[in-house]
Design a protein around this nucleic acid. Structure first.
Length: 422
RNA sequence: GGAAAGAUGCCGGAGUGGUUGAACGGGACGGUCUCGAAAACCGUUUACCGACUUUGUCGGUACGAGGGUUCGAAUCCCUCUCUUUCCGCCA
């Protein structure tokens, strides 16, 4: 959620920045300013009337204390009349406030000045790459065939148990997941991130805090009986740990990491992009989150990108880093880098991490603040990134490392996996 | 799932209708003292909204959340949420 203050101060600039994200409805900005004016006017009226009631009530108390019953009764009817005049205001005020809020949450975050102009994924800018694309033999096969060959992931039984898109990992497949999770977590904690294991279901307030609600209900699994949502990423519970908190400046940066399964309905996805492990309803991911001083968030973003880059490098996968253009960015982000690994048997780049700076967009919703040097509370900046998402990593490992001898496990994973190949 | 108790400021904890934004204690911060520190003493210490003569003054809101009674509610009533203890069930 954008800060009202920012919109007030420079509405035209806000509209310009929104246009970079191809958010066309600039009228919302004007509507917000208008509602804000109305709200202020009502607020003033309310405050003044309430002040009269408060001082009048105090007088009544004093009159009663002096035993001046008659005068007190007189005053009572006087105040009651003022009270009645307050009713229409106190009914109208929350309505306007709600309208203002409803408009405010419709606006996406403003893209940073660093965001490349562009509308589609073709306009994203490659800012880094590494690793070598493997030369596979003609007999090489895609991962959805490899998992059958080695009997390590079973989609049919997953579908039998739950439905399509719920893979069942088996044997060495299951163990490799565990190895990857543990390796990723160890890597993150070694860099100073505190490990958490959060709840996998969250309430409405929490889902609102990170921007999943409103409007993205359809992407989350929902437990009607309890009004809970299955988390689409552990970013949601992790960032909400600090909802409504006022931190000390010396507490920053706050660095959090967690493993969790992620649940996504992926309503509307279809076609060959969803084959095998490319797109599933439940997958495992290790996430990193940071809450930082506003002056430092863009440095921290770069630091998180290189943190993830070193992790990808350690797995010996060919990768590239994209800076997303305005049109391809998510609702809440101010600047996003995507990591993609090259899946050789599919001849395709697969997204395995997305690292973003949200500036105050999330923290304004959650009211995560710190006290600056003057003692005033100020919103912190929030950032997060995948470090890393597992299924596509697995797909690439299987495809790129296939050989006549089996699938070769990257050296860094051998201590966790216990073997050098599948 | 059943029963009981409870939810107050950074923390502990008073407060059952009228200067209580909140006693008392602790913490934190500032000061005095000291070579320095401890102790002692003095002082300060919430957030949000708004107005203005905008490093300040004033008004409003907030004692789990929402609603109600009243001239006036932390205090009375209703609903909900959460916590603790006991019982039941259970990995």
């Amino acid at each position: 959620m954008l800060q009202l203050q920012v919109i007030r101060q420079n509405p035209e600039w806000v509209k310009q920045r929104l246009a970079v994200k191809y958010f066309a409805d600039g009228n919302i900005v004007d509507k917000i300013l208008e509602l804000d004016e109305q709200r202020k006017k009502l607020q003033l009226e309310f405050d003044n009337t309430q002040a009269k009631i408060n001082s009048g009530s105090k007088e009544i108390g004093q009159l009663i204390a002096k035993g001046l019953k008659k005068e007190a009764e007189l005053k009572k009817t006087e105040i009651a009349a003022i009270r009645n005049s307050l009713d229409p205001i106190s009914q109208k005020l929350p309505v306007i406030e709600k309208q203002l809020q409803d408009e405010l949450v419709k606006l996406p975050n403003l893209p940073s000045e660093k965001v490349p102009v562009g509308k589609t994924p073709q306009d994203n800018v490659v800012v880094g790459e590494g690793g070598n694309k493997p030369q596979l033999s003609s007999s090489s096969i895609p991962h959805w065939e490899l998992i059958k060959k080695y009997d390590i992931v079973d989609f049919e039984i997953g579908a039998k148990i739950t439905g399509s898109g719920f893979p069942l990992y088996k044997g060495k497949g299951a163990k490799l997941q565990r190895a990857l999770i543990q390796y990723f977590l160890d890597y993150n904690t070694a860099a100073g991130y505190t490990e958490y294991l959060p709840p996998f279901m969250v309430n409405e307030t929490t889902a609102f805090g990170t921007g999943q609600l409103p409007d993205k209900e359809g992407q989350m699994y929902y437990m009607q009986a309890d009004n809970f949502y299955m988390i689409p990423t552990s970013e949601v519970p992790l960032t909400n740990i600090y909802r409504d908190a006022i931190l000390k400046e010396t507490d920053l940066p706050v660095k959090l990491t967690a493993y969790s399964p992620c649940f996504r309905r992926e309503a509307g996805s279809f076609g060959k992009d969803v084959r095998g492990l490319n797109r599933v309803h439940q997958f495992d991911k290790v996430e990193i989150v940071q809450l930082v001083h506003p002056d430092k968030s863009y440095d921290v973003l770069e630091e998180m990108v290189s943190h993830v880059e070193r992790l990808v490098q350690s797995l010996n996968l060919p990768y590239r880093i994209l800076k997303l253009c305005g049109g391809d960015m998510s609702f809440a982000s101010a600047l996003t880098y995507d990591f993609e690994v090259y899946s050789a048997a599919q001849d395709k780049w697969l997204e395995i991490s997305s690292v973003s700076n949200f500036e105050t967009f999330q923290t304004n919703r959650m009211k995560i603040r710190f006290k600056d040097k003057t003692g005033k509370p100020q919103l912190v900046h929030s950032l997060n990134g995948s470090s890393l998402a597992l299924p596509r990593i697995l797909a690439c490992l299987l495809e790129n490392n296939q050989s006549a001898d089996g699938i070769m496990i990257p050296t860094v994973l051998i201590p966790y996996f216990g073997e050098s190949k599948i």
